[in-house]
Design a protein around this nucleic acid. Structure first.
Ligand SMILES: [Mn+2]
Ligand SMILES: [Mn+2]
Ligand SMILES: [Zn+2]
Ligand SMILES: [Zn+2]
Lengths: 138, 138
DNA sequence: ATGATTCTGCAACTCTGTTGCAAATTTAGT
DNA sequence: ACTAAATTTGCAACAGAGTTGCAGAATCAT
């Protein structure tokens, strides 16, 4: 676990610090998509808000995590499973958010279906978010 | 136009006020998906921030407008084309957001494709947002 | 027209996210 | 292992987004 965080940082060209390993460990342990405030709480020891923001930005930029938009204005972040490099993401899977427990999950086995946009639109990224009730809360 | 705003309010059981007609008119005129701050600017005369928040909430609740989540934490709102009633929305079309001009558009003619979630997940709502470059900016 | 109900605008507040900067940590070179 | 350069961290201060309570204004039903 510790080891894994370390190699992820190395592999993506980020210097290895306590904070970064800590945040990455939370992602690895929970396996969930986490909001900014989830992280402020869950990580061992107190984390500075600003540092969390900057760390998440860095992780997104380097392709370590990806962003999940929600309809309640609270972004979630989750580890990239595929090898996303330097901001060029290709995590085209469906995301699920439970209305009951609030947990966000990457449905890695389910790719976002492709769509044909009307003439003139150029697609760069696509996201599909499903809201509902998760297996745990059903 | 004025008439249309009026009947939309009546049809959804909301009392008719200057502010509500004003905000609804902006949606009708532009035909675009608008952010909160778009509205504060565009409406004729000054609008109170708080009133805009409460108006948008009321409209979403009554099924007059729907929410479009984005990956930059700024919600957009757009008129429901179908007859959504009392919070029970069924606007299952794709949304497009242009990276260049920032405009958000309902692609009404393109339904969100259906997906089969893994066993145990119960789907309630689904949203599909495409980011890219719009015809005007291409 | 009148009273009951709902909506509006203001003030005050909390929460979220950003920026600049100095101290601490990490990295790379010796 | 030591050192200097580069990066990261935490703090303070700020700007923006969103919420709540309340009194006056507008709307609605009779
Ligand atoms: Mn994901
Ligand atoms: Mn729409
Ligand atoms: Zn759940
Ligand atoms: Zn555009």
């Amino acid at each position: 676990m510790e080891e894994q965080a370390l190699s992820i940082l190395r592999d993506h060209g980020l210097s290895v610090t306590t904070v970064r390993k800590g945040i990455l460990d939370v992602f690895l342990k929970t396996g969930q998509a986490l909001s900014h405030s989830d992280l402020e709480g869950q990580a061992s020891g107190q984390l500075d808000r600003v540092t969390v923001y900057r760390t998440l930005q860095a992780f997104v930029g380097k392709g370590i995590i990806h962003v999940i938009p929600t309809s309640d204005n609270s972004l979630r972040y989750a580890l990239c499973r595929d090898a996303c490099v330097d901001g060029h993401h290709h995590d085209r899977h469906v995301h699920f958010i439970c209305h009951h427990c609030g947990k966000a999950t990457c449905i890695n086995q389910l790719d976002v279906p492709s769509v044909r946009l009307p003439r003139g639109y150029r697609m760069q990224e696509v996201s599909m978010v499903v809201h509902g009730v998760c297996p745990n809360c059903d």
